[in-house]
Amino acid sequence: MIWYIARRIIYLIPTLLIISVIAFAVIQLPPGDFLASLISKAEETVDQAQVDALRERYGLDEPIYVQYWKWISGIITRGDFGDSFEWNRPVSDLIWERLGLTMVISLFTLAFVWIVAIPIGIYSAVKKYTIGDYLVTIIGFIGLAIPNFLLALVLMYIAFRYFGQSVGGLFSPEYIEADWSLERALDLLSHLWLPVIILGTAGTAALIRVMRANLLDELSKLYVDAARARGLSELKLLFKYPVRVALNPLVSAMAWVFPALVSGSAITSIVLNLQTTGPLLYRSLQAQDMYLAGSLILLVSVLTIIGTLISDILLAWIDPRIQLQ
């Protein structure tokens, strides 16, 4: 097991490298020197000495690989992601809480998706070709077809039109800037349900289909008949054998469900005005605040990759066949 984990972690290194290159490319993509955009945005005239200092710090006069090296080594050794020009603060000041909230939303959604999708998937497979199964299938397809942001808009409209409430945000106004406390955490929980449902819909629909297909495959396997021939009751049989085996691909499905959640949360958060990485990334891209944007893309990608790693380890833990390979 330890060897397996070690191997997976070694595999991560090239992945992280590629991600950092992509994130750096995003920083470099906009035309022109970003210092130029800094100067053009600054309200007062910028001190030439300050500009030179920045030029030196990011190695702007040096070849591109030196710039990359300065950027990545700053992140790894000092946790220095550069400065946000729009906010005029170090990037690292801005991102951690939002990254944390992104994680909270994604994890809650993941839990929601599993809790809803697994029982429905089991029901749908066991009651194959009944009205209930067809209903679940059709609702699932519709859930897959509605873009997150559209669902967010529609739910917001319904809340506004029929309940006179403006939903959105992750905190009540009085808690937005407050320090963390139990009250703030509870306030967060009371706001979390809407984004979790919106984000979870597509994933739930997808996982119901995966679970149903897996379980149908497993239900027709011989070991199920063998267990039945041993005198096991139908319910115990179902949960001990085929459901247990059908859960394995579901755990490995986490490897793509989690990135999709983080990905989807970007847009939903913009629509719902949540204090996560999505709106910050959106604003920074519009303002060409590239160090902030690049860092966000880097960190969100790293986060999803860690999620994938965890799902791999989890899978190896529950499925004894994996470690053997």
């Binding site: 993509l29 490897a255 893309i297 999803t304």
Partner: peptide, 14 residues
């Protein structure tokens, strides 16, 4: 596949 596509698309298309 392990990358969050939408933030990436956002960055590239911006």
């Amino acid at each position: 596949r392990s990358l969050p596509t939408i933030p990436l698309w956002m960055g590239l298309s911006a």
